[in-house]
């Protein structure tokens, strides 16, 4: 039941994710350096937040070519779960495991605040415990989190019921208030908010815990 946590040069939420998984959920983790290709024995993989490869070129553009992510594509094909948080979400879109792209926030500010979110779909295991429309509060911390996609892609996301979370006040200007999406199969979730920072009442809430529990269920 080990959860892999990918570490790129420039990742900075990898240890927070480990703390949340081990300290709050009691599951073991294994750090996966970006150069490894070995994902054997892992139940699920998390791409944590940060600034992989300095966010050079575009967020996630260089990470996309990391050896660990070539193995991750097969891992996803096998139906195993992958969670991309913040920079991890950006990497998943660059890699093509999720559609769309994350662009500069509408008002240019780096936004670091608790975000009010609505559960848009309970279809995937990630948000199955919540009824549609449930409000969650999770912290966001990003400069480039404005979700963008074509109108065709948006329609496809809606038709497939793949929009997982929406902002209630859309702080970054995302199309259709999108804060997180899944792939069609539902085993990959990418989201800009940080569930790992909301797993203990002491750090401001526990709304992230259920999302992370899906990794080990």
């Amino acid at each position: 039941m080990t959860i892999g946590v990918v570490v790129f040069p420039g990742s900075n939420c990898d240890r927070d994710v480990r703390w949340a998984i081990e300290g709050c959920l009691g599951a073991p983790t294994r750090f996966l350096w970006h150069e490894t290709r070995d994902l054997t024995g892992l139940e699920a993989v998390i791409l944590p937040g940060g600034f992989s490869y300095g966010d050079y070129l575009r967020c996630g553009a260089i990470a996309r070519f990391a050896p660990v992510l070539q193995s991750l594509v097969d891992f996803v094909d096998q139906g195993k779960k992958v969670l991309g948080i913040c920079n991890g979400f950006q990497v998943l879109t660059e890699l093509g495991l999720l559609p769309g792209a994350l662009t500069r926030n509408r008002d240019l500010h780096f936004i670091c605040e608790p975000a009010l979110l609505s559960v848009s779909s309970s279809r995937s295991p990630w948000l199955a415990p919540y009824p549609r429309g449930e409000t969650l509060v999770l912290p966001i911390a990003h400069g480039e989190g404005r979700f963008q996609c074509s109108s065709d892609t948006l329609k496809k996301l809606e038709d497939e019921d793949s929009i997982a979370l929406r902002y209630q006040n859309n702080p970054n200007g995302s199309i259709s208030n999108i804060a997180g999406i899944t792939n069609a199969k539902g085993n990959v979730l990418g989201l800009m908010p940080h569930p790992e920072r909301a797993c203990d009442p002491l750090t401001g809430g526990i709304d992230g815990k259920e999302i992370l529990k899906a990794l080990i269920s």
Partner: peptide, 8 residues
């Protein structure tokens, strides 16, 4: 594949 992201 590298320099640009065709989505945007």
């Amino acid at each position: 594949r590298l320099f640009s992201n065709p989505v945007i």
